[in-house]
Nucleic acid binder design. Structure first.
Lengths: 126, 126
DNA sequence: GCTATCAGTTAACTAAAGGTTACCAGTAAC
DNA sequence: GTTACTGGTAACCTTTAGTTAACTGATAGC
């Protein structure tokens, strides 16, 4: 693959680096649920969020998937897991400072989703 | 699901709407390749891009997946497909104006990926 | 005539992601 | 004693993603 264009710039090399960076992001944040969970915990960072509460409020997620995704996110230092000494035992999940760095990603996705829905509604009423 | 919090705000309703918008985005843009393809075509919007060229330059994609993803993206009006009257016949793909609206999404993902790689390198050298 | 290029498609297959159901232990209310 | 809540796990199943190799048909170069 060429690293220098006809005009002498490094555009293709930069492009490839960009695509690699995006692939990295998608590896950590990709899949059906991870960004949803991060957004949910960011929105509720002023509350204490338990496993069952998340399962009830994130539409359609199963205990298995929630459990797996939370483990992945914790391993990547994006969320914090704290076992509370209550009866019955509860486990509190919260977003970390690093997890908050994902906010711009979810924000652009929320904005694009809202805009896309509007576009679809407009194209249907025409 | 409650629509009004203890303090009388509509926070949970807003949160749910946000998550729905994000789910919409992920339905159209999700998966391993769609955002990569859109980013690639945006970066190269000053060039004419053919099928084989994309297959060679987007690392790891097969003809079958590229063909399928391009169809999906075209159906969502994000890219344009034009058959050129050349010998042999070539097919040019380009980003649409609407497709360019995805740029903020890929941009935040590229930035986050670069930052994440740096964080990982730092944590390894410690 | 042989080989290569273009843009794919098709079939047959494996791998990964995600969903469903049942189940566990501990505790607390009825 | 029964039910219900907590936070999960294990086994199984389905769906989606992805791979590989063979093939199309027109055309151009050697």
């Amino acid at each position: 693959m060429a690293k220098i264009n006809d005009n002498g710039t490094l555009r293709e090399a930069n492009c490839s680096e960009e695509l690699m960076a995006m692939r990295d992001s998608l590896e950590v944040l990709g899949g059906k649920w991870k960004l949803m969970i991060l957004r949910f915990l960011t929105n509720r960072s002023h509350q204490v969020i338990y496993f069952k509460k998340m399962q009830r409020e994130i539409d359609g997620i199963s205990a298995k998937m929630l459990s797996k995704e939370l483990k992945d996110l914790e391993a990547n230092l994006l969320i914090l897991r704290e076992i509370q000494d209550t009866r019955p035992i509860t486990v509190a999940y919260s977003i970390t400072e690093y997890g908050k760095s994902v906010l711009p990603v979810t924000e652009t996705l929320v904005q694009w989703g809202l805009n896309h829905r509007e576009k679809i509604i407009i194209s249907m009423t025409k």
